[in-house]
Write a protein that binds this DNA or RNA. Structure first.
Lengths: 317, 317
DNA sequence: CTTGAAACG
DNA sequence: CGTTGCAAG
């Protein structure tokens, strides 16, 4: 155990006992050598003290569920449990893979979260799909980029709240053979960036979801081997910087943890989750005006049910 | 229990105890009234005393497995167990749903049955497919109807033995909306009939498999409701008579049990198996020259793993 | 490796 | 309802 965990430096406070180990697969590393002083993200120890509900804060979560119906069928876990455990205010979902006809069956999924907004792919049934599920009623909601013709795949929901716009996005995967790379960058990323800039004229923006890009080497278990893999091409990484970060959006997890390895996705294909061969593809990016209000940007790597895990953002109001 | 079983007259010898009941779903009936003195087929009581292996006989079996790989994955049952239980000489399979590339993985499925012959659909992957698996080495084997262009779906294997040809057939389903009815009748049934007549010039024939036709009202749980359902249309039933029975093939189960309800197929769709809402679609038809040599033509309705159950034929040599 | 749809039964 | 192969990730 110790030998496996030494691959990245693990702080003493993060050491887990044998008995905790089974419950905390995130502690296992695939990296064979310690790299650049990176440390492993431990959601038990690396989070600030929780804010109590009598303080003013809002808790947002995001999760690529890889098929909502499959998730709900799973025993041993329900979206409801996450709600109870995390007591979030807003939950953003990606890859619901719902069709329009399925939406009614899940519209009132979570008691207390009466405000739910769903997009489905009309281009391909059972593909893509996003949702915002909220305790707070948004001032307004809009679907898609609006200004473009990229809205057939149900990849974006925007909810306007008092002090920010919340964008729940499922960015197109560049695909096997990178056959959709140019669409992803030249069309989607660009359009999304423009859309965000437009919104920022009136209010700060929070962009969350599966942005389908591991920004830096620290954000992927095997950077060298994935230089031409969808999600880690130099084109996508540069687009991520140019269209989002350079435009003033702050990667909240990275800001809080400059040297921390925290993955949010582990491919099913090679049992990547138990060896922590993961990627950080899910983000909370916030407009600069909000950056200082972030109390905690975190990952819940132990939540099962999807190839992605949920992430969270606690924002002081 | 008693009330459910009275829907068709059940002979005293067939009555089962409460404890046996769970194991014998075949005894349950969907018919709401006794009809025409029909009785239920009970494989425990309605079979002649078994022949011992020192007498000269051959035991043939046939089973539409509805996907051989799925069947083999099932726990609680394996094709091997059927071999051990039934000690057959030859097993005919339909709907193996194998592709050419899968055949090698199952070619030596059953120890002691070294002679195996497989057809696959080249028209549609994972569709149709038949096999003959034999302890006895056939004199010759041929695939398809040979004389026609209906062989792209892997629906027929013929094995020549000393005293008969054995045809393992998976007759085309007429499909939803009966869109393949005319092909089934005018092309397939006719070609098969001609093929059989040709073979009969040299030797008697045994035609077994999923013939996809419930011949008479006694052969289906709900005759009135299925007059336009694939497998019970008047066209298919007349074709069955004209092309096979009138041409001298004897329906061995029906000959042995003129008034017995014995189904071999229960659709998955409405849990038909536990209510015995079945059809008799699987047959052993034999040339008249063989009819008197039939010791037993039987059904094993309690064998799980497919929507069809295996049937058997014991033939004195 | 897993989801979901589609075809077929 | 259940199998299979398929596209997608």
């Amino acid at each position: 155990l110790a030998t496996e965990a030494t691959s990245i430096h693990v702080e003493e406070s993060q050491k887990v006992s044998e008995s905790d180990y089974a419950k905390e697969p995130w502690i296992r590393f695939a990296h064979k050598k310690p790299q650049k002083g990176w440390v492993a993200y431990n959601p038990r120890t690396m989070r600030p003290p929780p804010l109590t509900r009598d303080k003013d804060f809002v808790k947002l979560m995001s999760w690529n569920v890889n098929g909502l119906r499959a998730l709900l069928k799973l025993e041993g876990f329900s979206a409801l449990e996450l709600a109870q455990r995390e007591d979030f205010d807003v939950l953003c979902l990606q890859e619901t893979k719902l069709q329009e006809k399925d939406v009614e069956t899940v519209r009132d999924l979570l008691e207390g979260y009466e405000n739910t907004y769903w997009t489905c792919s009309i281009a391909k049934a059972g593909y893509s799909g996003t949702a915002i599920i909220s305790r707070i009623k948004p001032l307004s909601v809009s679907y898609g980029l609006g200004i473009s013709d990229h809205d057939a795949e149900g990849r974006l929901v925007t909810a306007e709240f008092d002090s920010f716009y919340l964008l729940c996005a499922y960015v197109p995967n560049s695909g096997d053979g990178l056959k959709r790379l140019s669409y992803r960058i030249a069309e989607w990323d660009l359009s999304l960036s423009k859309y965000i800039k437009e919104l920022e004229k009136s209010k700060p923006v929070i962009l969350t979801g599966d942005l389908n890009c591991a920004h830096q080497e620290i954000d992927i278990y095997n950077p060298a081997g994935n230089k031409r893999s969808a999600g880690f091409t130099i084109e996508e990484r540069e687009s991520f910087e140019k269209n989002f970060l350079s435009e003033g959006l702050v990667d909240t997890f990275r800001k809080q943890h400059p040297n921390v390895v925290g993955y949010t996705y582990w491919g099913y294909r090679h049992g990547g989750r138990k060896t922590n061969r993961g990627w950080r593809l899910d983000y909370f990016l916030v407009s600069e005006a909000l950056a200082d209000k972030v109390h905690d940007s975190y990952i819940l790597p132990d939540v099962p049910g999807s190839d992605h895990c949920p992430i969270g953002l606690v924002l002081k109001c």
